[in-house]
């Protein structure tokens, strides 16, 4: 049954990957990649159960952290072209 969950996660990851390849805008790709990352976290957790290796939970936790920081970093680089810049002077939409 863990295998079924893993298969469902794989299907979802393939669908997200198709969206990431199709685009069309950069934001579609970032949505897809962010979603892909969350699925990887769950996939690692499910695989830990499937293979009887509970140590995988630590890896899943670390991947959840990296995924969030990575998404924000990609957005910031794309928007400002610089990771170090502060932007307090932004106008409301």
């Amino acid at each position: 049954m863990f295998a079924a969950a893993a298969a469902a996660l794989l299907i979802t990851m393939i669908l997200a990957l198709i969206r990431a390849i199709m685009g069309p805008s950069i934001y579609d790709r970032i949505v897809a990649v962010n979603m892909f990352g969350t699925k990887i976290v769950l996939m690692i957790a499910v695989l830990g159960f499937l293979m009887g290796r509970p140590d995988f939970m630590d890896i899943a936790l670390v991947y959840a952290l990296i995924n969030f920081v990575g998404t924000i970093a990609v957005l910031k680089v794309f928007k400002y072209g610089d990771l170090g810049r502060a932007h307090d002077d932004e106008e409301p939409l």
Binding site: N34, T38, V41, M57, L61, A64, T71, I72, L75
Partner: peptide
Amino acid sequence: KLLLILIFIFFTSPAASFALAHAALSS
């Protein structure tokens, strides 16, 4: 640990969504 992962996903996913939507609309 699983609970910790869940809490973390629930805290970060709205922040990431907000950042994405905000960046998309402002660009």
